[in-house]
Design a binder for these strands. Structure first.
Length: 475
DNA sequence: TGAAATGTTGGGGCG
DNA sequence: ACGCCCCAACATTTC
């Protein structure tokens, strides 16, 4: 075995199974030098937000332990990735570097520069797709351009062969020269005010936790996924999103497990959700400005009404619409929100409140454990009606009807908005419509113990439609 | 992966 | 028995 090690640069692939970069490194029969570099300044303005950093902290801890079990230390560094890699190569004489690709615009650019610099130095360098079923550069429509509609995109993908999970390699030996490594705590990932403690109760970051989440989903929720996924009061979704974002499990592993579970329609519907994740990355790859700018340029002239109070009331979950407030509080407390409710709160922010979708995206970015640039961008542009295959702008969710339809017993609302706990199911999604007697017996004083609606639904809907009409006339 | 307004139909109450 | 009206229930269109 040659003495010069191979650097395995971990990024958003914090797993040891189905890890192409790791497998390739092992195939070189060189000592292994696993590395993680924390370089948020290179991801500006989309460096991981507060919640995501908590996840990263915990997930790195798991990866450190998992590697240690195999006798391998994980080197933790901080700073510009290229500089840190150079330093590591200088220190250890590493002859090769491998990593799994990320497809965010800023990262693509950075990694391309690093790769060519390393090649110039005569190192062997390989990057792999480990995070998507279909690599964005390889997917194109008949006309050669990117897809802008989900259904043809996904149909096209399904006609190709998806990435399959790789066999797990036997890990090599550690590098002889051990470069300096920072203690995990020194990366500054945890917030100073420890608002994150509540996350512990809801999540198990790391590869083992990802596998557990998948197992639970396959055993209990996949069969009824088609309808069950829409019920925020029930536990019918996979909750895999943060695990997938950090690469603790790969979509190939998920897909392969779902296919062998073979639960018919439920499986098909779930796989199309994985498809939306692929579609989001496809769009971000081809339209790198979309985290900031609407894909449909006419929306640049949309008459948003930025208002700090309205935004804050949405963020804090005090809009007076129970399903909206429940969602925003679930997000704050658990770092996650049910997808049905994400659509409801997003529609409410951009349509009823006319706040720019970018504000919603920024809040989600900071508070979601699964914050992912591609998915977050797609979701918000979809909600605002300005993206690819988006909900038409006139599609305004009625938060009362959505509540009644998808939280019929008010269980979700009562869980996250405890002040409504004693209110009967009839009025749980529209407390303002209840009589004073009913409110009193539920211990409620509207405007005091629970807010009155920040905007009337009908008025908000009409105002949103008028804004859209104006935009249509203009263009 | 909407909701509301508008249009249509058909059963039943009633003179 | 018949026509008229009301209005659910459903379908279609519009936003």
């Amino acid at each position: 075995m040659p003495a010069e090690p191979v650097i395995v640069w971990f990024r958003q692939d914090l797993r040891l199974t189905d890890n192409p970069a790791l497998n390739w490194a092992c195939s070189l029969d060189r000592p292994l030098l696993p590395v993680f570099i924390w370089s948020p300044e290179e991801e500006t303005p989309w460096a991981p937000g507060g919640a995501a950093r908590w996840w990263l902290y915990r997930s790195l801890g798991q990866l450190v332990d998992a590697l240690a079990e195999k006798g391998l230390p994980l080197i933790l560094r901080q700073g510009p990735a290229g500089r840190e890699l150079d330093a590591l190569i200088g220190k250890t004489g590493a002859a090769a570097v491998s990593w799994n690709r990320r497809y965010e615009p800023a990262i693509i650019k950075r990694d391309a520069a690093i790769k060519s610099a390393l090649l110039d130095r005569g190192l062997e360098v390989r990057s792999f797709n480990g995070s998507l079923l279909f690599s964005p550069p390889e997917i194109a429509s008949k006309s050669g351009g990117p897809f802008k509609v989900f259904t043809p995109f996904w149909k096209h993908c399904l006609s190709l062969s998806a990435r399959e999970p790789e066999r797990t390699a036997t890990l090599g030996v550690p590098a002889g020269k051990k470069p300096a490594s920072l203690p995990l705590a020194d990366l500054g990932l945890l917030p100073e005010i420890r608002w994150d403690r509540k996350f512990e109760d809801h999540w198990q970051p790391g590869e083992a936790g990802a596998r557990r989440a998948l197992r639970r989903f396959l055993d209990h929720a996949l069969r009824n996924y088609g309808a069950g996924r829409n019920r925020p009061d029930q536990d019918n979704t996979s909750r895999l999103s943060p695990h997938l974002h950090w690469g603790e499990i790969s979509p190939a592993q998920v897909r392969s497990a779902v296919v062998s579970a073979g639960e018919g329609r439920g499986a098909e519907t779930f796989l199309s959700e994985i498809g939306w994740r692929e579609f989001a990355h496809h769009l971000l790859f081809h339209f790198p400005d979309t985290p900031e700018e609407p894909l449909r340029p006419e929306f640049g002239a949309f008459p948003w009404k930025p208002n700090a109070r309205a935004l804050q009331s949405w963020q804090r979950g005090t809009t007076g619409y129970p399903i909206v407030d429940a969602g925003m509080r679930q997000l704050w407390e658990t770092g996650w929100m049910h997808n049905r409710v994400r659509m409801i709160v997003a529609s409410f922010l951009v349509k009823h409140l006319l706040q720019p979708w970018q504000e919603g995206a920024a809040w989600f970015w900071d508070t979601l454990l699964d914050a992912d640039l591609a998915s977050n961008t797609l979701g918000w542009q979809w909600s605002a009606g300005c993206g690819a295959d988006a909900a038409p702008y006139f599609r305004v969710f009625n938060p009362i009807l959505q509540g009644k339809k998808f939280d019929p017993d008010g269980v979700y609302v009562r869980r996250w908005v405890p002040e409504l706990g004693k209110l009967g199911t009839v009025w749980i999604h529209e407390p303002w419509a209840a009589s004073t007697t009913e409110l009193t017996s539920a211990g409620l004083r509207l405007g005091e113990t629970y807010p009155a609606p920040i905007v009337d639904h009908q008025a908000g809907r009409k105002r949103a439609l008028a804004a859209y009409q104006g935009l249509k006339k203009q263009s």
